[in-house]
């Protein structure tokens, strides 16, 4: 593994360490093993709710007793993106917020999935002609499942989760890592915005 060289005292710039994927051995793993692996992964999705707007309320409604997506193995108790498998972007992504969305996505460990929940995060929705709204979260992070609606009903989110689980069940981890863009350590260590209190804070 390419660990960073010993630092010569003080804080040095983080070096570009390629974050490694899984080994090539996974490609030759027997099919039953791969099936069991995917079966385990699809029913244990720790979800990180990127709650932004109206859709976040429907997300919460889906997690409550009436609709209860925990019965599908979606667990809404991830303390943060670093412990999550699935990010649900629910709400309007604005240009001011877009860097934060990207940063939190980068912080999630592989394999990671994204559900874009609601028209706003799909394509801008009713704010399609706004000067400050990102027209679709897929412009900044890859999206696995789109759930349409403004806001979508909880049943729609349940359906989206089922589709995602089908997708996970079908996929080969080796293939997924093959096309997954190589990330740099810099993407999660560089400051996103200057800390407040600096003279040039926006």
């Amino acid at each position: 593994m390419g660990l960073s060289p010993a630092r010569a005292g003080g804080r040095s710039e983080p070096t570009d360490v390629q974050i490694q994927g899984i080994g090539v051995g996974s490609r030759v793993a027997p099919a039953p093993i791969r099936f069991v692996l995917n079966w385990g992964r699809r029913y244990s999705l720790w979800v990180f709710n990127f709650g932004l707007a109206c859709c976040a309320i429907e997300f919460i409604a889906t997690s409550m007793s009436r609709h209860d997506f925990i019965r599908l193995g979606v667990i809404p108790f991830a303390p943060g993106p670093r412990q999550a498998d699935l990010m649900v972007v629910s709400g309007t992504v604005t240009d001011k917020l877009a860097p934060a969305v990207k940063r939190l996505y980068e912080q999630m460990p592989e394999p990671k999935y994204v559900i874009s929940f609601g028209s706003c995060s799909n394509c801008g929705g009713p704010y399609w002609d706004s000067y400050c709204v990102t027209k679709g979260v897929d412009q900044i992070i890859p999206v696995d499942v789109y759930v349409p609606g403004c806001p979508p009903r909880p049943e729609a989110l349940l359906h989206g989760i089922l589709r995602l689980q089908e997708k996970i069940g079908r996929e080969s981890l080796a293939d997924r890592y093959h096309w997954s863009p190589q990330r740099h350590i810099r993407s999660v260590t560089e400051p996103l915005v200057l800390p407040p209190g600096r003279p040039d804070v926006g």
């Binding site: 604005t94 001011k96 704010y127 706004s130 407040p196």
Partner: peptide
């Protein structure tokens, strides 16, 4: 404490 607003500004008034 300084509330920094504007992360959810969607420009509704202009629209």
């Amino acid at each position: 404490a300084d509330p920094i607003v504007g992360y959810m500004h969607r420009g509704a008034e202009k629209l």
